[in-house]
Nucleic acid binder design. Structure first.
Lengths: 151, 151
DNA sequence: GAAAATTAGTTAGCATAGCTAACTATATTG
DNA sequence: CAATATAGTTAGCTATGCTAACTAATTTTC
């Protein structure tokens, strides 16, 4: 039998909502996806670069953890970023197995430009929406971020 | 001083909101990402299959448009789904260039299982949220979907 | 009605990005 | 000092994006 309900009622079927969020995230990223052909920087590289730009220098393992990918995957992503001159690395003094990865000035510039380019068509569509819906989406974005971290 | 608000004021910086939505979508998908190794069905295949299951049979071009990928990409995704016995196709009578693609019973079953597996940890987190926030997220998911299609 | 243009899908070839397994090099521990 | 653990890399697989170039069928044009 059902216990009395407090605030945690899963009334609006959690699985269905999770599913719709998942699907909406896929579609939103597809819309935003531009192969960024001019810079030759793919989405994974851009995302890793943004960690280095906004959160500061990191080791390869830390970067892999932050991006939730395996070390070999990050190794290749970083190789691409270095080939493009967007990231610099050097071995640490304390532990010569470790790398210290940081964005170059060019990397930082490119990141800002690319982010803006990727997201601006979305922003254009948003500008056609009434203010309250935009605000609703802004709040939802924050909620989704927390959700992604398990709250 | 604040002017009285009409409906189309782009007050809450559209670019910033777009950026946060983009970032939230990336993080949510990383959280959900499971390579679904057991079934050998990747995320693009699963997503295409879900269109066939929930929206009904489609031609290859329609499916590509729905998934926002190019026809050659969808052609290969469908090849994978057919190899796995999850989708069936036949040439239409009216136009013999066209394909009618539909999910098999096995495809429908697998979709439900895989979707549930992928999003269930998200759903578990959602169940800890108050009902009104879940409802807010549900509405946001719909808005995001419309947004992805340019409204 | 035949030639031309358009449309639906496929094939080939390239790149990014996930993974695991197996390797090297360095650090730590017994 | 030997054994073990840790940080990254390399090799090799798969999936998924793309464009260009192709085949086959339909529609349009003359």
């Amino acid at each position: 039998m059902e216990p009395e309900k407090g605030k945690q009622i899963p009334e609006p079927d959690a699985l269905a909502v999770a599913d719709r969020l998942h699907s909406a995230a896929i579609h939103l990223l597809r819309r935003v996806r531009t192969r960024d052909t001019e810079s030759g920087v793919g989405p994974a590289q851009l995302s890793a670069l943004s960690v280095l730009v906004f959160a500061g220098p990191r080791s390869l393992g830390e970067l892999a953890a932050a991006e939730q990918v395996r070390p070999p995957t990050m190794s290749r992503i970083v190789a691409g970023l270095m080939r493009a001159g967007l990231v610099r690395r050097h071995v640490t003094k304390e532990d010569r197995r470790r790398l210290r990865l940081e964005a170059t000035a060019r990397g930082t510039d490119l990141l800002w430009a690319a982010r803006k380019r990727r997201v601006e068509s979305l922003a254009a569509t948003l500008r056609q929406l009434p203010t309250d819906q935009v605000e609703q989406l802004r709040q939802a974005a924050e909620l989704m971020d927390q959700l992604s971290r398990g709250m």
